Computed example of a mutant assay.
Amino acid sequence: MVEKFGTCLKKYFPRGPKIEMEFVISISLVILTLVMFNMRKTVTISVDGKNIKAVTLGHSYRKVLASNGIKIGPRDKVVPSLDSKVKDKSKLTIKRAVRVEVEVDGKKLSTESAEDSVEKLLKSENIRISNLDRVYPSREHAILRGMKIVVTRVQIKDLKESRAIKYETVLKNDAQIKYGDKKLLQEGQNGEKEIVTRVTYENGKEVSRKTMREIVKKEPVKKVVAVGTLTGNTLSRGESIDYARSVKMKATAYTADYQSTGKRPGDPAFGITASGTVARRDTEKYSSIAVDPRVIPLGTKLYVEGYGYAVAEDTGGAIKGNRVDLFFNSNSEASNWGVKWVDVYVIG
Score class of each variant (00 low, 15 high):
R280Q: 14
G271Y: 11
I272G: 02
R209T: 12
V291L: 00
K183D: 11
P297R: 12
G191W: 07
K193H: 06
A279R: 12
S287Q: 05
I177M: 04
R237S: 14
G262E: 05
G271T: 03
N190F: 04
A164P: 11
K263W: 09
I165W: 00
T252C: 00
K166H: 05
K217R: 13
Y258I: 07
A244M: 08
L302V: 10
R280A: 12
E161Q: 13
T231M: 14
S240L: 13
T261E: 09
V227N: 01
E206H: 07
A175K: 14
M212D: 13
Y167D: 00
V224R: 08
R281L: 08
K205N: 10
E202L: 00
Q189E: 15
K248L: 14
I215H: 12
T273V: 07
T255N: 05
P220H: 08
R280N: 13
G228S: 00
T200V: 15
R213F: 11
V170C: 01
D181F: 02
K301F: 14
L171M: 09
K172Y: 06
P265V: 07
I215S: 14
Y254S: 03
R163T: 12
T197V: 13
G204V: 03
E214G: 02
I177R: 08
E206Y: 01
S288Q: 01
A253M: 08
K218S: 05
P220M: 10
G271F: 03
P293T: 01
Y201L: 04
P297A: 15
K183H: 02
R245E: 11
K210E: 15
I272Q: 02
V247Q: 10
S260H: 06
A290S: 06
G271C: 06
A253F: 06
K182D: 07
T273L: 05
T261P: 05
G238M: 01
P268Q: 04
E219C: 00
Y258W: 07
V199A: 04
D282F: 01
D242Y: 11
V221G: 06
A290E: 01
D282R: 05
E168I: 04
T200R: 15
R294Q: 13
A244P: 02
S162A: 12
V170K: 06
N203A: 08
L184P: 03
A226T: 05
K223E: 15
T211N: 14
